Computed example of a mutant assay.
Amino acid sequence: MSIPADTEALIFDCDGTLVDTLPLYLRAWQAALREVGGIEVDAAWFRERGGYAEQMLLADVEKSFGITLNRPAIIAATRRRVRETIEGVRCNVPVITVVREWAGRVPLAVASSGSREVVEASLAAIGLLDVFSVIVTIEDVEHPKPAPDIYLLAARKLGVDPAHCVVFEDSHEGLKAARAAGMTAEDVRPCSEFRVAS
């Protein structure tokens, strides 16, 4: 992961980039859809949609299965289940190393398609909640990734020109959003090394 010399801020996606919450979300979504929606969705279907915001994912479920869901109830149940299992979440060691190396040198932000409650719980679980001066989540923007809104908002809150921000991402939607915001985008997938946070 190379960081340009003119970098003034680093912005990190959360799920799949800083922490490995994707297995937790998979189990939580499956349980919520089974218990609230009355349908079974297999793991492969979810994995193909990694990086989707909640409403995008549920819209795709409705389209794929030809049903209408109680979205608020399913989202609430999913978030609750993720929070209940977040304590042992694994962190992405190479990305966390970057966070620790740059903390205090430039401002750091998180820009996530996840909910604030889960993002903050994830960061607290790995001991990094206080490291980020800005946390922007899906509740803060009208248009989720791949729209650039969430990254532009993070840069605005940091007070940094988007052109001088470097984004760390693990999804096609997130990388597209960062580039559309005029930022340098680092794909962390080739260097993912998840371990339980200590």
Rank of each mutant, 00 (worst) to 15 (best):
G51M: 03
G51Q: 00
G51H: 00
G51L: 00
Y52F: 15
Y52D: 09
A53D: 05
E54Y: 15
Q55M: 15
M56Q: 12
M56S: 10
L57D: 01
L57E: 00
A59S: 15
V61C: 00
K63Q: 13
K63Y: 11
K63E: 13
F65M: 07
F65Q: 08
G66Y: 00
G66C: 05
L69Q: 06
L69Y: 01
N70E: 14
N70G: 07
R71E: 12
R71A: 14
R71H: 12
R71P: 10
P72Q: 01
A73E: 03
A73F: 03
I74A: 03
I74P: 01
A77T: 03
A77S: 07
A77M: 08
T78A: 11
R80C: 15
R81I: 01
R81Q: 14
R81C: 08
V82D: 02
R83H: 11
T85F: 13
I86G: 04
I86A: 04
I86E: 02
E87D: 15
V89S: 05
R90W: 04
R90C: 14
C91T: 14
N92R: 04
N92Q: 10
N92G: 03
V93H: 13
V93M: 13
P94Q: 02
P94H: 06
V95Q: 02
I96A: 09
V98I: 15
V98D: 02
V99D: 01
V99A: 03
V99W: 02
R100Y: 08
E101Y: 04
E101P: 04
E101K: 03
A103R: 10
A103P: 08
G104N: 00
R105L: 01
R105Q: 09
V106L: 02
P107Q: 04
P107S: 11
L108R: 01
A109T: 14
A109N: 06
A111Q: 02
A111L: 09
S112W: 05
S112G: 03
S113T: 09
R116G: 11
R116M: 12
R116S: 03
E117K: 13
E117V: 11
E117T: 12
E117N: 11
E117M: 14
E117W: 13
V118C: 06
V119M: 07
V119C: 07
V119A: 02
V119G: 01
E120P: 07
E120D: 13
E120R: 12
A121I: 10
L123Q: 05
L123H: 06
L123R: 04
A125P: 08
I126A: 06
I126M: 03
G127E: 04
G127H: 01
L128N: 08
L128K: 10
L129S: 14
L129Y: 09
V131L: 09
F132P: 04
F132T: 00
V134G: 09
I135M: 12
V136D: 09
T137K: 10
I138W: 05
I138T: 11
E139Q: 10
D140E: 12
D140H: 12
E142I: 14
E142A: 15
E142L: 15
E142G: 15
P144C: 09
P144W: 02
P144K: 04
P144A: 02
P144S: 06
K145L: 00
K145W: 04
K145M: 07
A147G: 12
A147Y: 12
P148E: 08
D149W: 05
D149Q: 06
I150K: 07
Y151S: 12
Y151P: 10
L153A: 08
L153H: 10
